[in-house]
Amino acid sequence: MAAVAARELRDGEVVFVGIGLPNLACNLARRTHAPRLVLIYESGAIGAVPERLPVSIGDPALVTGSSMVCGMADVFQSILQSGRIEVGFLGGAQVDRYGNINTTVVGSYERPAVRLPGSGGAAEIAIHARRLLIVSKLSLRAFPERVDFITSPGQRHDGVPRSRLGMPGAGPVKVITDKAILEADEATGEMVLAALYPRVDDADVRREVGWSLRRRPRLGRVEPPSATEVRLLREVLDPRRLYLKG
């Protein structure tokens, strides 16, 4: 999933890196096909070139050798809100039919069954990044028809398209999972099946999605990770398995 996500980043792009798997994917991309990727972390590290995999988005290795370190007011106002982020990259506990993400609560807000960490910078990344990539492991629990709480907005809110709500960015264009890639349908804003991993079929994906998943007329094939990608991930980037589980 990390390798597949990394391939979505183009060399030279400016990417706002979220916590968790996006952090790993961005650092893999920088060490493979996108050496000029500009990594921006909400902690204020601009053009980070971490020599070790950052354990968090505030890791000291993000500072050493970076091109700029600024305060968080600058990050959110002058870099994100001003439209300078080309790609936002988020994970999510729940992702719904329209790519709305929930990282706040499972259940009701007032009496949550599970309290999650909340937005952090995710809400504004989803609003402002020119395009948004989401990575999340496929499961019925993680992909409900409608999330319990919209932390970070997707393509539609109560049926209203995001452009009508005044959001500058294009929103979630792809959801990268461990079995398939979903893409936002341009007409309906729905996440639709766009590509399958090897040895996975339509039905395997549908079983793990809480809405009647539509599909592109022609599905793409996701290439398995190359030997180089696997080696970098396991031996260089994440030998302690901070992000790579199982």
């Binding site: 959110f76 106002q77 809100q81 709305n100 706040t104 807000y109 937005s119 809400a123 504004e124 609003i127 402002h128 709480f149 919209i150 932390t151 970070s152 907005p153 997707g154 809110h157 995001r162 709500l165 005044g166 959001m167 500058p168």
Partner: peptide
Amino acid sequence: PLRNYMGTDLPRV
């Protein structure tokens, strides 16, 4: 002022 929170449930709570 900030250009933010449209489409999120945060202002509701």
